[in-house]
Measured scan of single mutants.
Amino acid sequence: MGFKLLSKLLVYLTASIMAIASPLAFSVDSSGEYPTVSEIPVGEVRLYQIADGVWSHIATQSFDGAVYPSNGLIVRDGDELLLIDTAWGAKNTAALLAEIEKQIGLPVTRAVSTHFHDDRVGGVDVLRAAGVATYASPSTRRLAEVEGNEIPTHSLEGLSSSGDAVRFGPVELFYPGAAHSTDNLIVYVPSASVLYGGCAIYELSRTSAGNVADADLAEWPTSIERIQQHYPEAQFVIPGHGLPGGLDLLKHTTNVVKAHTNRSVVE
């Protein structure tokens, strides 16, 4: 069995187990497998329904001669939608809004960016022009300005110390501490036991640490421990890039980060 097929099978099995364990909360999309990078042309966006009122959005972007996937989250909030992270750029984010209108038909009224990198804030200006209120932590807003990236308009308070959590509509926002970046936030959907790890969490097929220019490698494993301790009931975990899975993604990420750190020390 090929690795790609095995990865998709694991996603399907995880979703099936969740649907059985929580039949009222989960209505997993039966329309197909989780979209992969090879299936999404740059400039297009796919939506994948995880649970009743919960979707991931998947886009792709060219970077350094390669094409990478990027995940975000959409959560229903009454007759409105909360968006977590842009679709990595203005063109993708405009396509995301169009796809949401086509498939869901509810307005996106608020959006949260989970850290300051372009795959999370690139497209904020498109959201703002569409009347979406954009939010991020003060740290993310400051770092985005320093980096020359787009800056969300509103500040999220109460997320300055490791372990801080605040309720934001249908989700809980959690600051686990520094990891992929010093400002990275985690998003949890309690009604569906869905954990969105953003770039602080890796997919299972990833074996290298990737972009760690703004990471705190020493603190990252401790931050992941905080996530595990705060959300032990999480059933569906979405990484910032690639295929979702279960809580095993947290341990896998820790292993990859520690291996990278150990290699760096040896070198």
Score class of each variant (00 low, 15 high):
Val171Arg: 03
Arg110Met: 09
Pro221Leu: 11
Gly53Glu: 10
Met1Tyr: 07
Thr153Lys: 11
Leu249Asp: 02
Arg76Pro: 04
Ile17Trp: 13
Ala66His: 14
Leu247Pro: 14
Glu219Gly: 07
Tyr68Asp: 04
Pro190Ile: 06
Leu47Lys: 03
Gly197Trp: 01
Asp164Val: 08
Ser205Cys: 05
Arg141Asn: 08
Thr253Phe: 03
Gly123Tyr: 04
Ala59Tyr: 05
His180Ala: 00
Leu73Val: 04
Pro176Gly: 02
Ala21Cys: 15
Pro69Asp: 15
Arg167Tyr: 10
Leu81His: 02
Tyr135Glu: 01
Asp183Glu: 03
Asp118Trp: 05
Phe174Cys: 01
Ile17Ser: 13
Thr93Met: 00
Lys4Pro: 06
Phe174Thr: 01
Leu143Lys: 08
Ile186Leu: 07
Gly158His: 15
Trp220Ser: 01
His117Gln: 04
Glu33Pro: 09
Arg206Asn: 15
Ala129Thr: 10
Ala98Phe: 11
Arg263Tyr: 12
Val126Asp: 04
Val121Tyr: 01
Leu47Ile: 11
Ile224Arg: 01
Val189Pro: 01
Ala133Phe: 11
Glu44Pro: 07
Val266Cys: 03
Phe26Gln: 15
Glu233Asn: 12
Phe3Tyr: 10
Gly122Arg: 07
Glu203Arg: 01
Ser70Pro: 05
Arg110Ile: 10
Glu80Arg: 08
Leu173Lys: 00
Ile100Gln: 00
Tyr231Ile: 02
Val112Tyr: 03
Gly65Gln: 09
Ser22Glu: 14
Arg263Phe: 12
Thr14Ala: 07
Lys258Ala: 12
His241Val: 01
His241Met: 01
Asp85Ser: 00
Asn149Tyr: 11
Leu143Asp: 02
Tyr34Arg: 10
Val166Thr: 09
Val124Glu: 04
Ala130Trp: 09
Tyr202Cys: 04
Val189His: 05
Ala209Val: 09
Val121Gly: 01
Arg46Cys: 06
Phe26Ala: 12
Thr222Tyr: 12
Glu33Met: 09
Gly72Lys: 03
Ala215Ser: 10
Asn149Asp: 08
Ala111Arg: 02
Leu143Phe: 11
Ser30Arg: 12
Ser155His: 10
Ile151Cys: 02
Gly198Tyr: 02
Phe168Gly: 01
Ile74Val: 08
Trp220Pro: 01
Ser139Ile: 13
Asn149Thr: 09
Ile74Gln: 03
Gly148Thr: 05
Asp119Lys: 00
Val166Arg: 10
Gly240His: 07
Val28Pro: 10
Ala90Glu: 12
Pro244Ile: 09
Glu219Asp: 08
Asn71Arg: 02
Ile40Gly: 08
Asp85Glu: 01
Pro176Tyr: 00
Arg141Gln: 13
Arg263Gly: 14
Ala178Ile: 07
Val75His: 05
His252Phe: 04
Pro190Met: 07
Gln103Asn: 14
Thr254Pro: 06
Ala218Trp: 11
Val189Thr: 02
Gly122Val: 07
Leu96Ile: 05
Arg110Leu: 08
His57Cys: 04
Thr14Met: 08
Leu106Met: 14
Val121Thr: 06
Glu219Val: 08
Asn92Lys: 03
Val42Ile: 06
Asp52Ile: 09
Glu147His: 15
Ser22Leu: 11
Ala21Met: 14
Ile104Ser: 00
Asn71Glu: 01
Ala213Glu: 11
Arg167Gly: 11
Tyr202Phe: 14
Arg142Ser: 13
Gly89Asn: 01
Ser62Trp: 06
Arg128Ile: 11
Thr14Phe: 07
Arg141Glu: 03
Lys4Asp: 11
Ala213Asp: 10
Pro35Ile: 08
Phe26Lys: 15
Pro41Cys: 05
Ser160Asn: 13
Ser264Ile: 12
Asp79Cys: 06
Ile20Thr: 11
Gln103Gly: 10
Thr114Lys: 02
Arg263Glu: 15
Val37Cys: 08
Gly210Ala: 06
Pro176Cys: 00
Val212Ile: 09
Asp79Asn: 11
Ala234Gln: 01
Pro190Asp: 11
Gly89Cys: 00
Pro138Asn: 09
Ile224His: 00
Ala209Pro: 09
Ala51Asn: 10
Pro232Val: 07
Ser162Phe: 12
Asp119Gly: 04
Thr254Gly: 10
Gly177Asp: 06
Ser161Asp: 13
Leu143Arg: 11
Pro239Gln: 03
Gly242Val: 05
Asp52Glu: 12
Ser113Pro: 06
Ile100Asn: 01
Glu39Asn: 12
Leu24Arg: 10
Tyr188Gln: 01
Met18Val: 15
Ser27Pro: 12
Pro138Lys: 08
Thr114Ile: 00
Leu217Glu: 06
Leu195Pro: 05
Val126Tyr: 10
Ala98Lys: 09
Gly105His: 15
Gly148Arg: 10
Val45His: 04
Gly131Leu: 06
Pro35Gly: 08
Val166Tyr: 08
Phe174Ala: 01
Arg46Pro: 04
Val146Lys: 14
Ala259Thr: 10
Phe63Ser: 05
Val194Asp: 00
Val112Trp: 04
Cys199Ser: 02
Val194Leu: 09
Val166Ile: 11
Gly246Asp: 12
Arg128Ala: 13
Gly65Trp: 05
Glu219Asn: 08
Phe63Tyr: 06
Pro239Lys: 01
Gly240Phe: 05
Glu145Tyr: 14
Thr153His: 11
Pro232Ile: 08
Val108Gly: 01
Asn262Tyr: 11
Val166Ser: 07
Ser162Thr: 10
Trp220Ile: 04
Leu195Thr: 01
Val45Asp: 05
Val194Arg: 01
Val146Asp: 13
His117Lys: 01
Ile238Trp: 03
His117Asn: 00
Tyr135His: 08
Phe174Ser: 05
Ala15Ile: 14
Thr93Val: 00
Ile100Ser: 02
Ser22Ile: 10
Glu145Ile: 09
Val124Arg: 02
Arg141Phe: 03
Asp29Cys: 07
Cys199Leu: 02
Asn71His: 02
Asp214Lys: 03
Asp77Thr: 02
Ser62Tyr: 04
Glu145Phe: 13
Pro41Arg: 12
Gly123Phe: 02
Gly242Trp: 05
Asp77Pro: 03
Pro107Thr: 13
Asp77Gln: 03
Thr153Phe: 12
Asp64Ala: 15
Gly32Ala: 11
Ser27Phe: 10
Val124Pro: 03
Val11Thr: 11
Arg226Trp: 07
Gly210Met: 04
Trp88Thr: 00
Tyr34Pro: 10
Pro176Leu: 04
Thr86Ser: 01
Ser191Asp: 12
Val166Asn: 05
Asp79Ser: 10
Ser16Gly: 15
Ser30Gln: 12
Asp77Trp: 09
Pro69Lys: 08
Leu106Ile: 13
Asp52His: 09
Asp79Glu: 11
Glu150Asp: 12
Gly123Val: 03
Ser7Asn: 09
Ile227Tyr: 00
Asp118Gly: 11
Pro35Lys: 08
Gln235Phe: 06
Ala200Asn: 01
Phe3Ile: 15
Ser113Tyr: 02
Ala87Leu: 03
Trp55Glu: 02
His241Glu: 01
Val37Met: 15
Tyr196Ala: 03
Val112Glu: 05
Glu145Asp: 12
Phe174Asn: 03
Ser181Val: 03
Leu24Val: 14
Ala178Val: 07
His260Met: 06
Ser208Glu: 10
Pro69Gly: 15
Val146Arg: 14
His230Asp: 07
Val67Gln: 15
Asp183Tyr: 04
Lys8Trp: 15
Ser137Lys: 08
Val54Thr: 07
Lys258Met: 11
Asp119Ala: 05
His252Cys: 03
